[in-house]
């Protein structure tokens, strides 16, 4: 089963993402995922200020400055992991270095039955 780990955090914590400790923790986590063979993909996201939202309505492209929804906590990064079940995914989510101050939303990917199941 593939799951997305979606990191929702506040601006305050987002601003501190380049702190030495945060960078080191992030790297260690990525290495742990890779060592366990569960890492599929992942990235941190740039500020929602740099987001542009696109939609097509009545056949016309509409482009807006900003994220889909303005919220206090926003999507700051994501990872995709391949693990046997939800409990395993929750365990990896709990190990995420941002779990202590941000919220990690765990969502199954559609239509990706795991080779390991």
């Amino acid at each position: 089963m593939k799951y997305a780990l979606l990191v929702h955090q506040s601006q305050e914590h987002f601003d501190r993402r380049n702190d030495k400790a945060a960078v080191a923790a992030g790297r260690a986590y990525a290495e742990a995922l890779q060592a366990a063979g569960v890492f599929v993909a992942g990235a941190g996201l740039d500020s929602p200020r740099n987001a542009t939202t696109v939609s097509i309505r009545d056949g016309k492209r509409q482009v807006h400055d900003g994220p889909y929804a303005e919220t206090k906590e926003f999507l700051a990064g994501f990872g995709i992991i391949d693990v046997p079940n939800l409990d395993a995914a929750l365990e990896w989510a709990a190990r995420h270095p941002a779990a202590g101050f941000a919220s990690i939303e765990v969502r199954p990917l559609l239509g990706f039955g795991s080779a390991k199941a």
Binding site: M1, P84, N85, L86, D87, P108
Partner: peptide
């Protein structure tokens, strides 16, 4: 079913 909650005793 869809989130694959495992049948296990933790």
């Amino acid at each position: 079913r869809d989130a694959a909650i495992p049948f296990r005793v933790p």
